[in-house]
Design a protein around this nucleic acid. Structure first.
Lengths: 332, 332
DNA sequence: TACGGGTACAACCGATGGTTGTGAGCCAGG
DNA sequence: CCTGGCTCACAACCATCGGTTGTACCCGTA
């Protein structure tokens, strides 16, 4: 099915006759007639009853019309999603395993009128390059690995510290625990497939493992969360970390357990990054929304790497006081 | 833009390479390459980065992908809307000026999983023919004009008595009234464009006018509710009837008034009609929903034509007692 | 009975979009 | 280091599709 044909159908339905629709579309009446006939042939139903004074919709045509309009609207949105000028706000959310995609869902609920496109880039380097080139408008990332300060033209604001949870199958040794301490995890195998070396994401887990003596295996490609959950559910000796605010499509009957981690609670520090001179109007709305809904970070009893908190030190930091919302470079 | 091309894009994005996508679509790899190249040319952006091991999405490609999927879903729904087997429930709602379209919106809110198509047929004769032929599944109509009983194979149930309201512009003589009696309307011009003779809809207003000595003009073609509202708003001597439960797109700044009519209140008696042997599963759901949400009819102080109430008499009938939900032929 | 409005059919023809054949780039393995 | 296997892209070819023009037909009206 060709969208030009659908457009022709809608034009003919609106005009009530083929001739006028042909004029609108800058083609001949015969071409309209052929297009409609072809559409009717592919659908297997008659869409118009031809009369000497024009063409009016059959019942099937009436039923088809709103769907045809919706089809054209969808096509328009699809084209707009890649149009350079005034395209939808394009945001990188790391992965579906952590909270930013949930934050974007909240934002969409609060501002359904704002067109959004969500993408997932490889790491913060790719995200920064994409932000600087204008390919994306914003990115949720943990920022500022040591020795790699943000470029001058990129602004950031901390929006969420997401507590990690342990995800285990029903036969895991810790499956029945209501919560576990980080110290208890030492010696257990924790599997994080798809954790590519060199990414800020891998750096986080490296620091976490080094700081508390954990064993985190990053082996194997990432076949998606379904495969990961399957494996974890069936392997008693295997567990994985997952963002505490992640909403997954939960496979039924797996007996998977989500167990809070304490003493301290490792949190993943999400910041929003954007280019200061990005003029996209929806970007301001997104920042305002996040500022209004952001839960505090740096809460007592949590842990995050030093390079992400902006403080000095090698071993990561356990927060003992509750902090507020702090900008790493407001404005834009 | 061609939907086959979009389908090819989605297949290639899912497969991660052109070759496999080509196999799925039963075309050659070269054809996929050409289609993608054409799509990229029309969109003006690169969708894939070609690598020696396949093709992966660019950021633009990632942003485009969900829109492309939605486009294909919309196309599927559009085709399904006219597919003979198991197509969406197709209901005739008379016109946008009266309540049935609102009832269908309510039904859609209550059962969003049921695919609906709403059509508007000319009159009850067309509706009955469409119901008998299977072209539509149900129709909201005022039934059984005198001497024309419903065919045996058509069932009906009274679902709503919709009170009429007077619609006037700000300069109309009755504009400031909080309500008007039917007797007060005598002598005023009431305009109902598009009221085609011979329809059950016109018969209703004929009876109303004859029974109470009103002047109802059906002159002129119906240019849609926008044009009607414009004219009524600007013409002090003109008013029109409108269903009391009709939700219109209300033009701002027109100063239009909706005035209840009393003593008695003319009500338009909507029944749902369907073919007894129609097997569409959603039809039962619709009837149950209407039975559960139907407001009483035959309420005290209302008026409806005799032929619509099923009682004898020439002059219409003013109900003095409150009735319940009565079926004119349950089952199906 | 012509006329003017509409649509459909036939003939024609260029552009579209498929095929096959081939080349270039990259990676793994001998 | 070269080769084989995998990928995608380009070239040539050709059938089909979808546009155009010209014409026939139908109906309401002057």
């Amino acid at each position: 099915m060709d969208l030009d044909t659908v457009r022709t159908f809608v034009a003919a339905a609106d005009a009530g006759q083929f001739q006028e629709a042909a004029a609108e579309l800058a083609i001949t009446q015969q071409a309209v007639s052929k297009r409609i006939a072809a559409l009717e042939r592919t659908l297997g139903v008659r869409l118009f009853t031809r009369t000497p004074r024009g063409a009016e919709l059959t019942i099937d045509g009436q039923a088809f019309l709103p769907h045809a309009r919706e089809l054209l609207r969808a096509a328009g949105r699809a084209v707009a999603s890649v149009l350079p000028g005034s395209r939808p706000l394009r945001v990188d959310v790391i992965s579906s395993r952590v909270a930013p995609s949930g934050l974007m869902r909240d934002f969409h609920r609060a501002h359904p009128e704002i067109e959004l496109d969500v993408v997932m880039l490889f790491d913060i380097e790719a995200a920064l390059a994409a932000i600087r080139s204008g390919a994306i408008d914003a990115s949720f990332r943990a920022v500022a690995a040591p020795g790699r300060p943000l470029p001058e033209d990129i602004a950031s604001v901390r929006v969420l510290d997401e507590p990690l949870q342990l995800l285990t199958g029903p036969a895991h040794a810790l499956a029945s625990a209501r919560s576990v301490t980080v110290a208890q995890l030492a010696g257990h195998r924790i599997w994080m497939p798809g954790l590519a070396p060199g990414t800020e994401w891998a750096a986080y887990y490296d620091d976490l493992a080094a700081g508390f003596g954990l064993t985190i295996e990053a082996t194997g490609p990432n076949f998606g969360s379904d495969a990961l959950l399957d494996t974890v559910a069936d392997t008693p000796a295997l567990a994985t970390f997952m963002g505490g605010q992640t909403r997954l499509v939960w496979p039924a009957g797996h007996g998977l357990r989500r167990i809070p981690v304490t003493d301290p609670t490792p949190v993943y520090p999400h910041s929003l990054l954007w280019r200061r001179d990005n003029p996209h109007p929806a970007l301001v709305t997104l920042r305002d929304h996040l500022a209004a809904t952001a839960t505090g970070h740096g809460a007592a009893g949590t842990w995050a790497p030093d390079w992400a908190t902006g403080r000095e030190g090698r071993e990561g930091r356990v927060s003992r006081s509750r902090g507020g919302l702090r900008s790493g470079g407001s404005g834009g």
